[in-house]
Amino acid sequence: MISAIRRVLAATVLALGVTHALAAEVQVAVAANFTAPMHKIAAEFERDTGHKARLAFGATGKFYAQIRNGAPFEVFLAADDTTPLKLEQEGATVAGSRFTYAIGKLVLWSAQPGVVDDKGEVLRRGAFAHLAVASPKTAPYGVAAMEVLRRLGVAEALAAKLVTGENIAQTHQFVASGNAELGFVALSQVWADGRLAGGSAWLVPAELHAPLRQDAVILAAGRDKPAARALAEYLRGAKAAAIIKSYGYGQ
């Protein structure tokens, strides 16, 4: 009996050891706007390579501070192209590993149908109590949203109606719960299977704000980790590209 248990234990340890050798884990910091596609990509990545991606979602600015202070992330999918560049210049990344994985699209969205028109005129009318944006201090989508308001010349008029989400996910939550009638969110958050998942929206023309180029980079902690390199490769592959596109991102 005891020898049988020992044999099972030995086999289990062996099996775990074997999977461990083949399949590693990679710690990934992911910009909040990329949450939904990244869940899908990580599942495919695990199926195809055996590596497991452990995902943390949040504001790009917060991740920057955490990475600079020793957070153990190995791959960073930012919501902009400046933060990964900054990390690279500070020597916190693997040189030459930076690339653009998606181009984000900003959308003015309301959970209610008929609130947002397809020209964004609702902003000029201003007949609402709260407009949600992501924090321009820490979230690139917040910077883009403020740029759009300035270009439209309504930034001053709407300043008192702005409510700020800590990141784009919280901003979406303010609008989805109806507490803010409308807000600037990422298209990926309200887009599924090639169409708007609900409510009403205005896809902000790209010329109204600087392009939301979203860059990824392998961080210093991922230097000798095959799984980190594999994930970076996978993000550039055809399968990931199809998923990224299906959420309304450009590439």
């Binding site: 504001a59 600015g61 917060k62 501070a65 924090s135 201090k137 820490t138």
Partner: peptide, 8 residues
């Protein structure tokens, strides 16, 4: 404080 920390 949280804002300050996030913005470095």
């Amino acid at each position: 404080i949280y804002d300050h920390v996030e913005a470095l």
